[in-house]
């Protein structure tokens, strides 16, 4: 599975996007998805530097494609309104973090991430995520979105 309950944080303490990314990377590291936190964070921040991965509507999807990732993963966290240089300048409260190995085996995971990305553009899906009060609800919403 791309995502599980250990990759979800319903209340992540972070004041900056760098801090949020680092904490999410640690979460992925604990789950064995990332083998080198520093290198993974570096890849994500490098991508972030090209242009912000915030897509507006309070959502950001930092992501990195690097050898530091063992296995594709998706992490999720609710945060308290971080400035993410969003195109609509709104603070971000929903963060999906994505990691994909440089040489991925198969497209299955990428297809799921593509579907999720599309769903994130929909208001009803974002509402669902905001209203979710437990990790189970988040998992269910994500699974429904990519089904």
């Amino acid at each position: 599975m791309l995502i599980n309950e250990n990759l979800i944080d319903m209340n992540l303490e972070a004041d900056t996007k760098e801090e949020a990314i680092k904490k999410l990377a640690q979460m992925a590291y604990k789950e064995g998805r990332v083998n080198d936190i520093d290198r993974y964070v570096e890849a994500v921040l490098k991508r972030e530097a090209e242009y912000s991965t915030s897509v507006g509507f309070g959502v950001a999807i930092p992501h990195g494609k690097t050898d530091a990732v063992n296995e594709p993963f998706l992490g999720f966290a609710k945060v308290k309104g971080i400035d993410w240089s969003a195109p609509d300048e709104k603070p971000v409260d929903l963060v999906f973090i994505i990691g994909v190995p440089e040489a991925q085996a198969g497209n299955e995971h990428l297809k799921i991430l593509a579907k999720l990305s599309r769903r994130l553009m929909k208001d009803d899906f974002r509402q669902l995520l905001r209203q979710a009060s437990s990790k189970k609800d988040i998992l269910a919403a994500v699974q429904e979105a990519v089904a």
Binding site: V55, G64, K65, R118
Partner: peptide, 17 residues
Amino acid sequence: CTTGIAHTYMAAEAIEE
């Protein structure tokens, strides 16, 4: 997009919508 993971599809969705 450069990584081809997310923005490609979000942009597609936005344009379609």
